[in-house]
Amino acid sequence: MRCRKAHWYLSARCDDTLSEKQRRDLAAHLDECPSCRREAFYFSEIKGQTAGVEKIRARADFNLRLQAKINAWEVEQETLRDHAPSSWRTLRELSVWAAHYFAGLGNILFGQRRFAVVGVVTALLTIIIWTGYDSDEQLVDNTAALTQELADLNQIGYELRLETEVADPLRDYLISGVSLSDYTSPRSQPNYVMPTIPAEQVNAQLIF
């Protein structure tokens, strides 16, 4: 047997995994090789010393600290479960908000009701489809919120258009070189009333 192979066997001997034949071969080699006998001594010493290396144990409060961490995690999980919106709810809210802005911006920018109508229909459909998984109360809340939102946005749209009606005669005055002091705004008239959208009109849009 060569010394290199004997070294491999010496490590295996530490684990007691040598076969009977391997054990005999190794013993025969050790009898005639002082260098490998020295190596065998080293290996057995290391094995013995390693087994006697101090065993580090967990501290006495280990379990308490672990328990505290688990409790903290469980509380965190419960909080998340109670307060985090479900994915359905998040999607629903996103779609309703998208519909609101679509309707409102269409009305404000272009003064055209068809954008508002498309927005309302989209919003209602999404609410009806998705609140199918939720309570009737939620459906009522969502519809009421949408109605209010649309009323507000349409009001803003009307007011903006009114401003345009006021601004156009003012521009004409300025171009024609007339002094600004000669210009009278319709709002300054004593019996001027700010136009508002009739409630029936808003409801009519929603019914449509």
Partner: peptide, 19 residues
């Protein structure tokens, strides 16, 4: 086996003393 060989080399002087 490699780890044991490294340790054996590290500890050689001390091991030789014990031997």
């Amino acid at each position: 086996n490699r780890a044991r060989a490294i340790l054996k080399d590290e500890l050689r002087p001390k091991l030789e003393e014990r031997r």
